[in-house]
Design a protein around this nucleic acid. Sequence first.
RNA 1: GUGGAUGUAGCUCAAUGGCGGAGCUCUUGAUUGUGGAUCAAGUGGUUGUGGGUUCGAGCCCCAUCAUCCACCCCA
Length: 442
Amino acid sequence: MPKPKIEPRLPKGMRDFLPAQMIKREYVFGIVREVFHLYGFEPLQTPSLELTETLMGKYGEDADKLIYNAKHTEGKEELSLRYDLTVPLARVVGQYQNDISLPFKRYQLSPVWRAERPQRGRYREFYQCDADIAGIATMQADAEVVSLVVTALKKLGFPQFVVKINNRKLLTAIGQYAGLEGEPLANLYRSIDKFDKVGADGVAKELRERGIADDIATKILALVTTKQPGTQQLDYVAGIMGDFEAGQAGIAELRDVARFLAELDVPAEHYEFDFTMVRGLGYYTGPIFEGVVTEPNLGSIMGGGRYDDLVGMFRGETIPTTGISLGIERIIDVMDILGLYPPGIGGTVLQVMVAVFGEDTRAASSGLAAELRAAGVRTELYMQDKGVGKQIGYADKKGIPVVALLGAEEIAAGTVKLKRLRDGAERVVARADAAAAVSELL
RNA sequence: GUGGAUGUAGCUCAAUGGCGGAGCUCUUGAUUGUGGAUCAAGUGGUUGUGGGUUCGAGCCCCAUCAUCCACCCCA
């Protein structure tokens, strides 16, 4: 074979998914879709490319630099690869006022692109699955999407995870409480967001390095890191933030979220109010969410929040909207590490392989394969001229659970011999019963 | 974008500046109606790329590219 002229390789941060991986991915996708349907969210698909003007300026300055330019060399339109699924949704809600009735509950499971430096759990092309509710201003919608992710993660088999809940308005009030605004305030947010990673001392140190006065830093840290069970956490902060209008508003929203979550029977162990959690995206206006698994720690596996003003950028009126985004890639990484796949999810979609003994029995084997397929059994017909031992070895390596053996003996008797590779169990059945017998052996 | 580490067979890795190796994988055979195990043989490489130092470079120096890690930021 001649040497390939082109070195086969991938763009930075992008991956191929070989069949064994795709089978697992599609299992995850399937569960997520199922749960989303259960909550009444319906599918939406938008193009990978958006007009650059649609995307720019929605995520904050830093993020704009991470947007892939996708303009054709001779194209007249300025195009970019989508950076998330939220802004395309806002565009859709703005664009199809006659076709969309509110509230609009949609989900979208699609790849997004970010030109970040790749790292563990960080890719330049990755799938997100967003579920959003446009047109509902009350916290019922926020509770609904939190309930949705909790159900989805439980259904996927995650043993322990927690959705952290905070509020942008409350963060604004904390800034007022600290007497900071603009860049110093942004730095404050960035620092306290690292609380989980670097601890109180680390945050205090960083605040000092960023020129935030010690007394302010101490005050903020005490406020933000005090842990109280459940809604007592809200009472505690309300006592301190009472003087700030934004603080009152933010706390009131969180109280509503808590109430609705309880009404929806969302287990208390799966959510908590955490005032150290900050989300970077610029468009959030109310409650914000972030889901984390502590073991293994691959960063957050979901994020979201309320963005009441974003749709207004694409529509004469503003439409209150809230939603969440599941980080499918990290969910899959965690599932791989924890082995959360059911036993049936193997390296193949096949259920049976029909072996071929020789040229004289090929027609019979082909016929059996046709019958099995007609009966809905996922069947591979062996296509090389190899010994039966090799054929079984091939099936085993590929993870095909059952091999159908059809030699001269079986043909003469009108039977099929089925061998289950997992334990070597063999059964001889009438050819007409082969499909049913395969299903029993699985 | 910033800093650090690493690039040798498909994969994981050895090799004092002196003849490029091992394990696994893969192919074939032992085994023409029964896989995984074992044994044997075989395929596989311009040592990421381009320069430089040297009698001689996988090894030292410079550049470049790629990957990983930590920042920044984020799913």
